[in-house]
Design a protein around this nucleic acid. Structure first.
Lengths: 266, 266
DNA sequence: CCATCTTTGTGCACGCGTTCACAAAGACAT
DNA sequence: ATGTCTTTGTGAACGCGTGCACAAAGATGG
């Protein structure tokens, strides 16, 4: 998956491990799908498969919530949907503001996954006066000046930052100053916030870089096994000394079948 | 931050822990910023602060890469930028395709963070014939039919899926069939892929749900402290012993305002 | 050349998360 | 009722990641 964790250090909430909390939405989605197909019950095995996790892990996760589930039968889908929703706080309405209505901000505003989960986009905010009033996803873009009143009037406690990196900290500070205590940050910056404020970060380029790392490793292992050994043996000092030598090493990519690729694409 | 990890189980790549790999892009960004300001060296303390992590952790992370750094001085910025870039595979060009050019796909196509990191958008692909040829972010949208040739001709090994959930698995299968071995998935679905293919997932609504969980907890702690203590006191054993008792027990749960949920749904 | 001071690199301990494996709980059939 | 069969809930072991704390390395000054 794709996220990092600029998170609370180690404060486990109630008794529920952070890792479990992060999986609850996953289970919820799978359960919702089952619910729509009117499936009455699921076993941990089935549900785990649908959510893409280990069944033992799933059972343990649920055990933190309590003993829902019947031995020999499985879990009642509807009941579990309700319990998880409640645990995640989705039974209530969460007004959110999106700040920074560029390409990404607009895409977020249009994203359907929010509304369907109890999140209501209370306002779209942008610093550019030219944007003010322009309708995006059915809502008029408001100017940053209105930020405070918007937060106050709507009781907003969750903010989404989709501004350029340079503006993010400033926007963050203003959000926090006016009462926002949870922030979802799409700007590629480390935000510093006071104690008690949660920040989660989504960084698109980081995800790609992680994939690139593994991709490189795959390519290297396959085609250049000896070269790889050499690289492993020769400590970084060597490799650094001659970047050219390295550039030549990762040429071979695996095709869909076993065909051995020729040279690297220029 | 914002991602999950539908990842390789436990196979640590080379000797570098997965957690470390995930932080390297963070360090790289901070270092790049320093580099642009022509700062020659940084201490682990300074860099750690800039990247938002613990300095001990940072030093340990770097120790996996090798012994770059001079005691009493710190790390050479330029050198470290190079080393990390190389380790992440960013010294080479990674052509990527983006499939599904809706709001999100278009936003991704326009996202500057890719190009600046060695990622090149080789093509934008959409299933809608009406989209074909339309320019997005300076590139003409191509139709799904061309998927295979695009991947082949460009040597694409990384694919980004930004389609609706329903189409994601199918797109994924086609990508994989034609040689893509790393996928960044924005569709809210669990993708199943063969061994050897890496999937990372970015799920916007999941991030919000996690924030909502903590937000709820914060609100609850404040207003319903005693109820919270009671819940903490009763160990799982109690609750497990009698599901009925439990159902009743969590009646007094912290709502934002203290509303008590009724009974369980049938 | 020696002393001092800074900063790295890492051994070690601890805690969280994952997984195995199984006993207990309940459904269902006889 | 009793027995069988399924599936949960969890105790226990293990491994990874984190953070402390310190020894070693090197710079710097005398």
């Amino acid at each position: 998956m794709a996220t990092g964790r600029t998170h609370r250090p180690a404060t486990r909430s109630r008794g529920i491990p952070e890792a479990t909390v992060a999986r609850l939405p996953l289970y919820l989605r799978a359960l919702t799908a089952l619910s729509e197909r009117s499936v009455p019950t699921v076993s941990s095995e089935e549900l785990a498969a649908a959510a893409g996790v280990n069944s033992a892990k799933l059972r343990k996760d649920f055990s933190y919530l309590g003993s829902y589930g019947t031995r020999g039968v499985g879990y009642d889908v509807e009941y579990l949907v309700y319990q998880i929703s409640r645990e995640l706080g989705l039974t209530q309405d969460w007004p959110v503001v999106i700040v920074g209505i560029g390409n990404l901000g607009a895409a977020l505003a249009n994203y359907g996954g929010f509304a369907s989960r109890g999140f209501r986009v209370a306002a779209l905010i942008d610093a550019d006066p030219a944007m003010a009033g322009k309708p995006v996803a059915g809502l008029p873009v408001r100017h940053t000046d209105e930020l405070e009143s918007i937060i106050r009037d709507n009781g907003v406690s969750i903010g989404v930052i989709a501004t350029p990196a340079g503006a993010a900290q400033q926007v963050c500070d203003r959000l926090v100053a006016h009462g926002v205590t949870s922030i979802l940050n799409f700007a590629p910056t480390v935000l510093s916030v006071p104690e008690g404020v949660d920040v989660r970060k989504v960084d698109l380029s980081i995800e790609l870089q992680i994939l690139a790392f593994h991709e490189q490793r795959k390519a290297g292992e396959e085609s250049a096994a000896p070269a790889d050994l050499a690289a492993a043996g020769a400590t970084a000092a060597d490799a650094a000394a001659s970047p050219a030598a390295r550039a030549g090493a990762d040429g071979g990519r695996k095709g869909p079948d076993g065909d051995v690729p020729a040279v690297m694409p220029a």
